[in-house]
Each structure stands twice: as C-alpha cells, then as structure tokens.
C-alpha cells in the first residue's frame, strides 16, 4: 500500500481527481454519473493504443506508427463491412491487419536492425498512405448498424466498451504481473545484454512487443469505429504521440523496464480527461494541446527531481550497505 502511494499511478490519479474537483468548483455537472462515464468512454481508444505502446516502451523501444495502424485497421474494418462481410469476419480482418502492421515493424527492428524510431516513422507514412489508397481518400460512411450497436449497450448504466476496456486492462495487468514470458518485456528493457546472456529470447520478446502494439491498435480501431460510426481519413491522427505521452504520464519510462498497464491506462484517461475538463470549464478546445503539453512537461520535470533524489538515496544506501558488509571482517 505504501508502495502504491509513492508510485506514479498514485500521483497521476491524485492529479486527475484534483483536476475533476477543480473543474467541479466551476461546473458541478462534471460530478454527474453520465459525465464521468462519458469521460471514460471518450478515452477508450487512447487507452487501448497506449496499452500496446506500453509493451514497446517496456523494452526501451518506441513505436510512432500505432496511430496510423489504428487508422489502417479502421479502414479495413469499414471497407470489409461495406463489402457486406459479416461483422465477425470484418473485425477479424481489422485485427489481423493490426497484427501484420506490428509484425512489419518487428521484422525491420529485430531482423534488419533499423532503429525503432526510424522504422516506425517510416511505417507511419506507409500505413497512412495505404489508408488513403484503399479508400481513394474519401471517408467511409453508411456503416451497417451491427457495428454501431455495441456502442449503445449498457450494463449497470456503464457502456459496454468501458466494461470491455476494463477487462482488457485487467487481463493485461494480470499477464504482465504473473505470466512469466510477459516479464521478459521488463527484463529486456532493464538490461538487454543481461537478458540475452541469461537465455531470454530477446529478439522474440522485441518481436512480440511490436506485434502487440499493432494488435492493441487494431482493437482500438474497432472501438473507435463503433463509437464514431464512420472512418475519416485522419482517424487516430497524432494518437501515436498522445499514446507515448500517456505512457510517460502514467510512469512507463522511456528508459525501459518500468511501468504498469494501470499506469498507462490512467495516463491515457488523463490525457483525454484534460480535454473534457476544458469543455466543462468553458475553455475553447484549441487549448487542449497546450494543456496536454504543459502537463506532460510538468510531470516529467517533477519525476526528474524525484528520481534524482531517489538515486542519491539509493547510492547512499548502497555505500552504507557495503560499509556494513565490510564491517563484518574486523
């Protein structure tokens, strides 16, 4: 419990609650049940993309193509649906698209040894281009009701997709904590050389991380398409950067090896909530980006100071530990 209170998840949750309370001072509508669920509902796409990005960042990598992957998967979903495919087939096609897109990144990074930022920047262009080539540049509209329907489902007053996303977060959290190969993501990011020496399949782990990023991006595409009801050509544009920001906010460090799915999800919720808060406060939406940027910078700046202090403490502890060990000889 004490550990949790000192964690980044706690910090960001606290900030989020403060933000909601502050907004509530000016507009108490935010405390309504519907407002809260709406904020959750609006954050789902980013939450899912961020969860995928998280695996990549665990390994000390980066994937800036996830937004484009979501867009591409959404286009495949919309196109196949309008071709009359049954919804299960269309969703499967979208998911496979995401996985394939992630695997292309994985091949370039693990086998061709292209630096992750370069590889995924390249595929960002490729996937965005493909989106437009497939659709001819026009939006995909008139989607069948079957895909829009789930967005209206509610259980206990809470939208189906919120439940679904919570389930995904829970599964991911359980896996990263308890399933041993999932710990490899942390190990590779923490000490890649050591991981290799100790027999961890480093390349396979990296491969899996980028593939998972693609898979989650596709999952996000399904939720996104269902919620919006159409696919625009700039669908999920810029979400790659928001997903990275969400992870950093939630304590998933770009230096690898640190973070939790809960942190990544709360980070993403935070990024979206800022937008909703500003609406409740009556601030024009144009200030969204500025707020997101300032918050991200503030959090990493605070984190830098916390880490510096912790590092000093750790160093002192280690030196004291050594001294006490050596004390044993006299």
């Amino acid at each position: 419990m004490k550990k949790f209170l000192r964690s980044r998840e706690a910090l960001i949750t606290g900030l989020l609650i403060l933000l909601i309370l502050f907004t509530g001072l000016f507009n108490s509508n935010i405390f309504k049940f519907n407002s809260i669920t709406e904020i959750f509902n609006a954050s789902l796409t980013l939450v899912l993309i961020s969860l995928g990005e998280m695996f990549v960042i665990f390994t000390r990598g980066i994937d800036v193509s996830v937004g484009a992957t979501t867009g591409l998967a959404a286009v495949i979903l919309g196109t196949t649906l309008n071709l009359g495919w049954p919804i299960e087939w269309a969703i499967s096609a979208a998911i496979v698209t995401g996985i394939l897109a992630g695997m292309v990144n994985a091949v370039g990074i693990t086998f061709l040894r292209v630096p992750p930022i370069i590889m995924t920047l390249g595929t960002l262009g490729i996937y965005r281009g493909l989106m437009r080539i497939i659709t001819g540049g026009s939006w995909i509209e008139n989607l069948p009701q079957s895909i829009k329907e789930p967005n209206l489902w509610k259980f206990a007053g809470i939208p189906f997709y919120v439940w679904l996303t919570l389930l995904v977060i829970a599964i991911t959290a359980w896996i990263t904590l308890k399933y041993k190969p999932a710990r490899y993501f942390y190990a590779v990011g923490d000490n890649e050389q050591g991981a290799y020496i100790l027999g961890i399949p480093v390349r396979l782990t990296l491969f899996a991380a980028y593939t998972l990023a693609g898979f989650f991006a596709a999952l996000a595409a399904v939720v996104f398409t269902s919620q919006i009801g159409f696919v625009s050509m700039n669908a999920a544009d810029g979400f790659e950067l928001k997903a990275i920001a969400a992870n950093v906010l939630g304590g998933v460090s770009l230096t690898g090896g640190i973070g939790t799915p809960l942190g990544a999800a709360i980070g993403a919720l935070f990024m979206t909530a800022v937008h909703s808060m500003l609406i409740f406060l009556g601030v024009p939406g144009i200030w969204d980006n500025a707020f997101a940027g300032v918050i991200l910078l503030t959090v990493v700046y605070i984190d830098y100071h916390v880490r510096s202090a912790l590092e000093l403490q750790r160093r002192q502890a280690r030196i004291r530990g050594d001294a006490s060990l050596k004390g044993g000889e006299s």
Binding site: Y186, D190, A195, I200, G257
Partner: peptide, 16 residues
Amino acid sequence: PHVFPHLSVLENLGIG
C-alpha cells in the same frame, strides 16, 4: 553482474 534493477531479487534469480 547482470542485474535487472527494476525486477525483484527473486525474479532476478529465476530469470530465464
């Protein structure tokens, strides 16, 4: 020594 600073000691021992 190959240490994974953010994994627990037990996980460090059992890794691989």
